[in-house]
Design a protein around this nucleic acid. Sequence first.
DNA 1: ATCGAAAATATCCTATAGGATTAGCTGCAG
DNA 2: CTGCAGCTAATCCTATAGGATATTTTCGAT
Lengths: 244, 244
Amino acid sequence: MSESTYPLGDSVLIERKGLRDRVYDLVLDMLVGQAIAPGTRLSIDAIARDLKVSPTPVREALVQLERTGLVTREPLKGYRVAPQITDGQLESLFDTRIVLEGGAAALAARHADALVPRLEAALAEHRTVTATVRAAAATDGLTVALLRQYFTVDWNFHHLIFEGTDNPFLIDMSEAISTRVHRMRQTVLSGVTDADDAVAEHALILDAFRTGKPDAAAASMRDHIEKVRFRSRTDAHTPDVHVH
Amino acid sequence: MSESTYPLGDSVLIERKGLRDRVYDLVLDMLVGQAIAPGTRLSIDAIARDLKVSPTPVREALVQLERTGLVTREPLKGYRVAPQITDGQLESLFDTRIVLEGGAAALAARHADALVPRLEAALAEHRTVTATVRAAAATDGLTVALLRQYFTVDWNFHHLIFEGTDNPFLIDMSEAISTRVHRMRQTVLSGVTDADDAVAEHALILDAFRTGKPDAAAASMRDHIEKVRFRSRTDAHTPDVHVH
DNA sequence: ATCGAAAATATCCTATAGGATTAGCTGCAG
DNA sequence: CTGCAGCTAATCCTATAGGATATTTTCGAT
């Protein structure tokens, strides 16, 4: 038994990617989803009990999480949620983004013809969600889920450019950046007031890609990130927006 | 007890960084040290028996190794040594290095005054080891240890520039690059015939840093890596150099 | 002789138990 | 009331055992 006789074994086939990855996804969602206080202890046994698995896969997932910078580890003392990003680290993060995403834009411009349609679709979705967010903010119906959706479509534009490079190393590094950017947004809470600016700047980047010139694409990207940096600085210490 | 009364407790304090990191270092040395055939299975139990530890720390070390790209993993099938780098991946690696190290050079130029002395020392060491390698090659006394030493001092120059940025994210990414570059050198076996070229180009980079201009530093670094790429292309499929 | 199938081996994956260490709390002295 | 010693409890780390799966070997049929 256990041939392909019973085609309804799909549900168990989905499970066939190891417990480790499922635990990883769940803990990651928990970390980027709801803002958890930095320094909170992440007990291996407690997580294992909650998820009804043994500590071993939890341990492996945390090792993987550690390399993303979301959790920190002290030997013999356990894992903790990484401390809030400092102002200095924020500047370093933007410097890194300018280097990485600027270079990625230049490389992706080689395949501009294949990339432009995707960017257009992503930008259209970005516009739509931005309008929804504005309407919700006006009627005081801004939900956390809607915020997350906005962050996703915003980052999706940047991610497409990384994928456009067709460079596995750069794509891998983009994910390392992604987790940090998400974490930054939890604390800064910007990126909602400047939604229109972001859309406009993304449109400029798209125009640059339409020209097919690598330098233009890189310059527009660097310009965009530099402006995001500036807006983040000013919005850094303003009180949070009210969210339902 | 356990105050600073007994200062001889240092030896046990060295051990106090957990088995996982020690296993990681050992396996990493094994992978970058002696060239292991790609696709070789890395049995968790076998490694655990060899190192006289339980499988758990081995498992964690392999998860960490997986993110460096040195080993691959298939769920329910185990770990293997990552396949040899392909020509396309090699080009991608050089593209990534140009983006990352070019940007790092521009950022490190901010602290050029503190960085230049270190680069001078590293370059001097690079020169010394290069002379030793040349002499050894002439007398047919080229050892693997000497080769490793050369690779180390060569990369040390690049690593200093990353550290000069004082940017934790870029430094972290530099280590991700480092393992790939080491692995590439195992297969390409270049970097020994062009030792003099490398030293000369590093000297040019140092000169650029002396001017303190970020653009000059970045340009010299990109130029260097581009030349390394070109030399790697030509040397890619030449027979191996005889090494004792 | 070659191809296919089935059994045996080795390996991974998960679960549970025990020793060692650390964090938190209670109680007492100053 | 404050500070410190000592104890309790929770946690991490390591080790071992059992079930499930993949790979290899062997045997038999064409």
